[in-house]
Nucleic acid binder design. Sequence first.
DNA 1: GTGTCTGCAAAGTCTTTGCACCATA
DNA 2: TATGGTGCAAAGACTTTGCAGACAC
Lengths: 160, 160
Amino acid sequence: MDENCNRRLIPCCMNLEGGIRNRGLRMTIPRQLVAGVLDTADGYLSADEIYTRIREDYPGIGLATVYRTLVLLDEMGIVNRYNFGDGCARFIIAEEQTSEHSHQLVCEKCFKVVKYSDFVKDELDLFRRVESVLSEKHGFEINRHIVQFYGICPDCKEEK
Amino acid sequence: MDENCNRRLIPCCMNLEGGIRNRGLRMTIPRQLVAGVLDTADGYLSADEIYTRIREDYPGIGLATVYRTLVLLDEMGIVNRYNFGDGCARFIIAEEQTSEHSHQLVCEKCFKVVKYSDFVKDELDLFRRVESVLSEKHGFEINRHIVQFYGICPDCKEEK
DNA sequence: GTGTCTGCAAAGTCTTTGCACCATA
DNA sequence: TATGGTGCAAAGACTTTGCAGACAC
């Protein structure tokens, strides 16, 4: 254990350690740190942002390790990767946001995410109907859908 | 005019030439070709795919020119840029798909797009309600939303 | 102790930029 | 003919890969 690391090492995503060990992999400090940073983030983070945050407490970490860990966590379904078109991928803890159904309100400036529960049932009802009609009509095998509202959050609005 | 170019030079997006000239810019063959390829595409294309298609008829074109033209067409609102997370941006002609409201059924393998008209009114009604509640509740200034269904199109399903 | 993981550096991709020549208007 | 545009090559940014030493179990 490394005394350079002050960050809390037990991320809330309890499936992390089990998932890692089930695959015959090892639980390491960098893996816990990457998951921990994402777990306490309130929005999407880029690999570099994760790297920078971890370095505050654990200066030895390498950016390549962050990337490798993100690939692993993505494959395990613990984080979701998303690309907003600003040149780098961004990551968010998966939680209840399943891979088939993602509804979010995202700030275009800071990538903060607000999860909302209003209308979720209405949305799902509508989307089930849309999916069944579309898949029948166009022969698509539909796997998932994305609903995202983009805007500027109160904090970023103030900054302007 | 270059006789190496056999491709039809008049893309359907008639606002192209006017928009270009209004900005004091010049109408050139590469610009017409990029717009033309996107205009006849049935889905999202990457810069490299556009470049490859143009080179069949106009071998002299440079990839940098394709990128520069895509930036221009994006700024003009003639094409929309989108990022599916596979490492490169993809482009589609804007048409009726406005920047505030985008509903699509996208093939995850070939990026073909099916535009659907079913439920569009239901979706818009619901989304207006969701937007007004969310913006009030969370203080967001909401600019646009995206609805995308992802799946495998009939052609790609067959190939498997 | 063994096999995995890490950090560093180098390589790989996609995209943008600089510059001399070319083409549009 | 005077800008603006183009193609090429180089540079930039993000991400992945290779490898020797370090670490988990």
